[in-house]
Design a protein around this nucleic acid. Structure first.
Lengths: 237, 237
DNA sequence: TCCTCCTTGCGAACACTGTTCGTTGTCGAA
DNA sequence: TTCGACAACGAACAGTGTTCGCAAGGAGGA
């Protein structure tokens, strides 16, 4: 760095476009930037242009490392799934193990914005998805769950985990946007209570139960239903 | 036209401009056009401009009848849910009744493009949603399911129904786009079979089971898990 | 050393999106 | 007949994903 660097270049010099080192962009850095944006502002804020500006460049530059936005989202999803750590299957504790694994998955998705949205309607085939599916199936199989049930459970419970993660994430979204979830639920509750009781006897009677519990409570309830259903199908040890 | 018309609209639905002489455009015609587009080309094709041109007008005209796109989607969703017909709760057949009702809901959503996407992350409070929820809870309660379980089940199973409906709809999407689902599943199957067997023993062993069955089979499997879980919690008759 | 090829970076542009603004045209009531 | 209300709507704005064409630099060979 000499003193000359501080001077503005004469305008008749053709300006050097980039003083910065060129090899600054990579797939990893793009995924990291996207993930950061996702966590901070949700999936709606995740545009190619915003990811690019986060990295100090233009949107077009991303397409040298990533085919489309969908591929970027796939990569981000797999990155998130990488946060989940996998147990070594133990036949004597299979119920606790699947419960913990699915709970972890729910938590990992829910804590990363509404990334779970990209999971729905796709068969996730990223390396981390595959590792999770493999481990899940190994645990269930060790528990004596029949093969067809094992295969379908990993899909079906996966859908359930994704769907409830979206719900939980939306809760978090609301909070970040300055909204108060309890206030919102209060509004919903008052609306349900104000329904005509003759046509909605159960809804009006159960407003307390309907608005009780947070996302995790509801997820836990559903998961327990599913896991106990699987346990009922398992051959006794 | 059913009793749903008599319900108070949720306060966040902007009331239609009342008693106005309308020429061709109306809320109903907009919802119908949107639904038609949704069925034909999926939710991604559902833009305000396309709905408008379907009606022979411009996008701006829609905003006299609908506050935003989100509200339009809410209306479309409720229209779809109106296709489901509700049984009269019968305590002796509660299991068959909930199973049929949830299966119907799944079918209604799946046959209308990926409309189920708008269901996720929202508490659906349209008149038809409320009627379905009321009936579902009445059936479960008649079956002796505890109140808290009734309330959470309607939410949790609703999420499950929506998630699997998206999956089924995506299947249909693929078919409409000229793709062959069996060919696609064959591809997935070959990919899984080609995985290193030492690190993915279960996945490679269960490729047949993993690609077996269509959306309805998988939905039925998951639903059976959930319903039998609820039955286990019900007090004996 | 020079001259290619090839990948990366990137500004500009294209065809879209949801939404708003200001104006036009029409209709019911006074 | 006049007037005010309001649906209809073209144009515009700010945003989106993606493509194109060109510039810059490194690698490899002559």
């Amino acid at each position: 760095m000499t003193a000359a660097d501080a001077l503005p270049e004469p305008p008749w010099w053709t300006p050097r476009k980039n003083a910065a080192p060129r090899r600054t962009l990579s797939r990893e850095s793009i995924v990291t930037a996207a993930l950061k944006l996702l966590r901070a502002e949700g999936i709606d804020a995740l545009s190619m242009r915003r990811v690019a500006t986060e990295l100090g460049t233009g949107a077009a530059s991303l397409y040298a490392h990533v085919a489309h936005k969908e591929e970027l989202l796939d990569l981000v999803l797999d990155e998130v799934l990488g946060e989940i750590d996998l147990p070594v299957p133990d036949a004597t504790r299979w119920r606790q193990q699947v419960t913990a694994l699915w709970t972890d998955s729910h938590a990992a998705l829910a804590r990363n914005g509404d990334i779970a949205r990209v999971l729905l309607g796709r068969v996730p085939l990223g390396p981390n998805s595959l590792r999770i599916a493999e481990t899940t199936m190994a645990i269930l199989r060790a528990g004596g769950v029949p093969d067809q049930a094992v295969a379908w459970a990993v899909d079906v419970v996966g859908s359930f985990v994704a769907a409830t993660a979206i719900e939980t994430a939306e809760h978090v979204n609301l909070q970040r946007a300055g909204g108060d979830p309890t206030e919102y639920y209060g509004q919903v509750r008052r609306y349900m209570q104000a329904l005509p009781a003759d046509r909605f006897p159960v809804t009006t009677a159960l407003t307390a139960e309907l608005t009780a519990g947070d996302g995790d409570d509801r997820f836990g309830f559903g998961l327990e239903l599913l896991v106990s259903g699987l346990a009922a199908q398992a051959r006794p040890a």
